[in-house]
Amino acid sequence: MKAILTDTTKCIGCRECVIACKKTYNLEEEVPRRWSSDDGLSSRNWTSIIQKPEGKFIRKQCRHCLQPACVSACPVGALRKTSEGAVIYDSKKCIGCRYCMMACPYGIPRYDWDQPVPYVRKCILCYDRITQGKQPACTEACPTEATIFGDRQELLGEAHRRLKETPDKYIDRVWGEKEVGGTQVLYISDIDLSCLTYGRPLGEKPLPTRTATAMNAVPYTFVGMSATMAGISWIIGRRMKIQEKPGDDQREDNDE
């Protein structure tokens, strides 16, 4: 499992990561549009730098959850979690329902609203690069090593090591370690990162488990409901037959 660790105290807001991402994927220039949101992400910006007061910067990108809500939500399996951990998108399968955008707790996937043939767009952890053994374009471009790429366990260790070494510098928390079951894009920071979840605190329970209960009940509901209805029908039919006097054919139901 690969991961990215972003240390916001090291980020200088130079946007080299944003530029590297746009170059790698030939993303077009951004035009402010009605449907753009103010965090800088869009179908043409897969990562962005959010500026906070006092010269603090937070890089926003797909979190590549360990149990992604978008993957479990997609009705056609256009989104997929690979063994490396990247959540990738297959535009050939997509039907454009935008359920993934609704399901994502971080509000990451963005849409080509201005296209007649629109697709969902988001960071794919440079899947083709990491399978070739390279690191993602953004971490490679970072001049201050504010955002680094590596194995998730190692990076978690590194994060905790930094927290332990200079506890004054950081808030004592690794964002992404446990939220919604853990994510592969981790943050350590000296400022509160709740802006990445629109100020909503996320629980530790993975989101797909919430639907799993309902989805597991589906076959039982189907069989149960069918059996109940068949049973009721049989009982009522029988009762009616007993009540009927012989020779009374009025009940014959053939008008439909």
């Binding site: 939500a73 997609c74 399996g77 997509c94 039907i95 329902c97 359920y99 849409y111 639907t211 989805m215």
Partner: peptide, 26 residues
């Protein structure tokens, strides 16, 4: 009208994701 790629609506028949409630609804 709502789907971005309505001509792909039949994909639900061949591409399955049984974890998705939308798949079940479809």
């Amino acid at each position: 009208f709502d789907l971005g790629l309505p001509w792909n609506i039949w994909h639900m028949i061949i591409f399955w994701n049984p974890h998705s409630p939308l798949f079940e609804v479809g």
